[in-house]
Amino acid sequence: MDIDEHVQLDKLAERLKHSDQDAYAEIFQCMHEPLLRYVYRIAKDEALALDVLQDVFMKLWEKRLELEIQVSLKALLYTMVRNRALNINRKRSRMMYDTELVTENSTEVTESLVENELHTGQLKAYFKTWVKELPPRRAEAFILSRYHAMSNREIGEVMGLSKRTVDTHIVHALRHLKRRYDQLGVT
């Protein structure tokens, strides 16, 4: 998604305010994939992710007449999805933590790699693991920036942070990736 698409989305939001169902469909069409990916990261459960998406789009339609966009429609949708998912997480008690995979044997990975050549697929897997090692909020800021094409201002809006803090999170996240990458010993 680039800047044009951002503009596009906000135009759709205008049409949505006038109960335009095609606009509603288009918003769903272009946002459901990234939003599902984002909720899934918070909820860690596909069925729940779908529920959250449905709730949020339901609400978007219900509230279309009073729709007020602060930063962008995109930031608004992410904020709605985030609040909803966090609420559910809170309610689901601590059971969650038992099944949460945080460190997928990262030491093993590092060792077996030094002498082998890196495949892109393998490298991807390492990056996935390393992103998971970040403190939760840092990981979230990085993921939104890297994989959701969000501006740092939008991320700030969604996560309730200043833009500068988002910048810092991203730099620190990249530094962590670099440290881990250097440990692989590939040049």
Binding site: E46, L50, L123, K128
Partner: peptide, 14 residues
């Protein structure tokens, strides 16, 4: 690092 981390996001199985 930014370049190399492309496409390393987790994708739900939906």
């Amino acid at each position: 690092m930014w370049r190399l981390s492309a496409d390393a996001d987790e994708v739900p199985n939906i």
